Simulated scan of single mutants.
Amino acid sequence: MTTPKSDFEIPEQMREFAEKSVDQARKAFDTFMDATQKAVGRVEEQTNAAQSGSLGMNKKALDYAEEHVDAAFQLAQKIVRANDVQEIFQLQSDYLKAQMEALGEQARDLSESAARTAGDVGRKGTDS
């Protein structure tokens, strides 16, 4: 007579499928980001000096978005390798804490960049 297991176990085949799916999604996203970065680069080359501050902020925001998506993929990879539900909850909790800290830092950085850009544009407007 066997005793029923109380732990939630993920079958190995299901883990492999999930891991392959995450890897494929990651590759597709990386291809998309490469194309997007190239497009942003071309736009930056075609703009004048007055727009450089806002383009820099757009690039920075795009970089931040890429960092967040990368962190989400890392979380997904960790989750498919988790041994139990408790570990999944801990991984998610750690992820959310790190993301909130990153968002706070990024918001401060973007705010400072916006203030610098506004100051630069204001100075250029009075120099003319």
Rank of each mutant, 00 (worst) to 15 (best):
Q92A: 04
Q51Y: 08
D7G: 06
T117M: 05
M57W: 04
E105W: 01
Q37L: 12
F17D: 14
A82Q: 09
S93L: 07
Q86D: 14
Q106N: 06
S21Y: 04
P11T: 12
D84E: 11
G122T: 10
Q13R: 14
T117R: 04
F17K: 15
D120A: 01
Q46L: 12
M33T: 06
S113V: 00
A118Y: 03
V121E: 02
D30R: 03
A65L: 10
V85S: 08
T36Q: 09
S54H: 07
Q106D: 07
Q86F: 07
G56S: 08
S113A: 14
A65D: 10
S6R: 11
R15S: 09
E19G: 13
R108S: 04
L62R: 00
G122R: 02
N48Y: 10
Q90R: 12
Q24G: 07
A82M: 10
A71E: 10
A76S: 14
D34E: 14
F17Q: 15
L91K: 11
E16M: 15
L55G: 03
A98Y: 00
E66P: 02
D70Y: 01
A71Q: 11
T3W: 03
I10P: 12
Q106K: 11
E87K: 12
D120R: 08
V85N: 07
D63K: 08
G104A: 05
D109Y: 00
D94R: 02
S93K: 13
D120C: 00
A39N: 10
T3C: 01
I88H: 08
E16Y: 12
T3R: 09
V43T: 15
D7C: 06
K59Y: 02
T3I: 05
K59H: 05
A102H: 08
T2P: 13
V121Y: 00
D109W: 00
F89G: 08
M33C: 05
S54T: 09
F17S: 14
D120H: 04
E45T: 12
G53V: 07
Q37A: 12
Y95C: 04
R116F: 02
K97R: 06
K97A: 03
S52I: 10
E112S: 05
F89E: 07
Q46D: 12
E66C: 09
